[in-house]
Structures are given as C-alpha cells and as structure tokens.
Simulated assay, not measured.
Amino acid sequence: MARLLILACSATKRPDPGSIPAFDRYDGPLWRTLRAADPAGTRAKVAFLSAHYGFRAASSQIGVYDARLTKDLAARMIAGGVTTCWPRPASSSQPDTHGIHAGAEIAGLTAYGAEAPAEVALVGGQVYLEVMHALVRGFVEMGCVRRDARVTVINGPIGRMRHDLRA
C-alpha cells in the first residue's frame, strides 16, 4: 500500500554549505523523529511544504533559507494550486520561468499516478495544513492520490506530534 507523508519544513536547518537533500537539511524535532523512525525511507514517500520552495520531495536538494509561511503566502499558494512554480520570481516583473510546481513533484513521487497513495499523512501547523489540504485535493484531481485515500492530520503539541509521526 502506497503512503505519502507531507511534512512542514523546519525553522531549524543544518548549516551545511551548498545544497543537500531536504530530508537531511531540516533538523527540527519532527524531522529528527522521521529520520529515527524511518531512516531508510521505506515506510512512506516523503515530501515537504516550504514557504520558499513550495511542495517538494524530501529528496530535493535545498540550500539554507529563512522564510515563514504567513497566512497571506498560504492564500497565494492555495490560489495558485498545483501548477504554480516555487520559488516565485524575486519581482513580479520577472518571467515565471524558474522553480518547480507541486503537480510535477507529485507526479514524480507517484510514478504519474501508477503508485497513487491510499494513505496520506499531513504534519504541521494550521497554516501549513490549510495549504496541504488544498494541494491534496489538486493531487486527487490529477489522479496522483487516490480519491478514497485516508488522510491523517498530525497537529498539536510537539510531543503528541512526534508520537503520532512515529506511529
């Protein structure tokens, strides 16, 4: 049974220079719990939601950055849906020719829907969860997440979240 875990990014990041996989870059308590619970990455396909990078596979190479997901930015992500590329251009007058969109990432993670997950876990704070829910709806419409997929939300005190993530 295919599983998808979407985890909020982390303010705590390893300071390694250059780009490294997000799975290794993020170093907050939830990411540490994930690495301890599934070090080989066999229990689920893992993706993250970032204010800077948008939705990406946890294997994506990322650099150090500092950005928070605000309600305004979350609303823009939701409005842009699965076809808006992230990161966004530095200026609205620049062409929108860089970044990756969530639809391309989920297609790669699910072999274009051939491995559509039957279970999805969303992990993060309320603003992140709003965007994650919207993206999952778009992924269902694309055929990359099963319509009958069971969606589990992991939110609350950090100790409870770490416990639920391990499970």
Rank of each mutant, 00 (worst) to 15 (best):
E141Y: 01
R25C: 07
F23S: 12
D38W: 08
H163P: 03
W86L: 09
G124H: 03
G41D: 00
E130G: 13
Q94S: 09
A37R: 08
A36Q: 07
V153E: 01
A149M: 08
S92L: 02
D72L: 11
W86C: 06
I20T: 10
A37V: 03
A75R: 00
R43M: 15
M142A: 00
P39R: 12
L165F: 00
I100P: 05
A114F: 10
I158L: 08
N155I: 13
H52K: 11
A40H: 10
G125F: 11
H133E: 13
L34Y: 14
A58T: 00
G143E: 05
G63A: 15
V127T: 07
V136D: 12
W86G: 02
Q94N: 11
V120I: 07
A104D: 10
A47Y: 04
Q126P: 06
A104K: 00
Q126D: 11
G41Q: 07
E105M: 10
S92M: 09
A37L: 04
S50D: 09
H98T: 07
P15L: 09
D27A: 15
T33G: 02
T83N: 09
R76S: 14
A149R: 00
G108P: 05
I158P: 02
M1E: 15
P15A: 13
A57R: 09
D148E: 04
V82S: 12
A90Q: 05
R147C: 09
G113T: 03
Y128F: 06
S19H: 15
T12N: 08
W86A: 04
G113Y: 01
H163D: 06
G125Q: 02
L30S: 07
I62W: 02
K71A: 14
A37Y: 02
I78Q: 08
C85M: 10
G28F: 02
A118K: 12
T33M: 11
K13C: 14
G18P: 12
A2S: 15
I106D: 05
N155M: 12
A90D: 04
N155F: 15
D27M: 13
A40L: 13
E115F: 13
R32C: 06
F139Y: 14
T152I: 01
G81L: 04
F55A: 08
L5Y: 14
D16R: 07
D27R: 14
H133N: 01
V140F: 00
P87M: 04
